[in-house]
Amino acid sequence: MSSLQQELKESIIEALNLEEFTAADIDNDDALFGDGLGLDSIDALELIVLLDKDYGIKLTDPEESKAIFQSVNVLAAYIEANRTK
């Protein structure tokens, strides 16, 4: 599980071009949106593509995705439970 979290942090930083951050800056329980990492709705769309590409998970409802993108821990748990690759 912890390697998945590390992998997620690195791919989030790369996909969203978060040049100011390194994986070490992101805590597993940090809020990704709003006050935490400061991600927004466009980033959510980009993360939906990332889940599809890397883990074979298809999300279509932006509202539903908000709950999944709460934190790296929540996201990792969702991926473990739903991944198809």
Partner: peptide, 10 residues
């Protein structure tokens, strides 16, 4: 036509 980057489109 898979995994296209939404940010680039915007």
């Amino acid at each position: 036509e898979q995994f296209v980057p939404p940010t680039a489109f915007i």
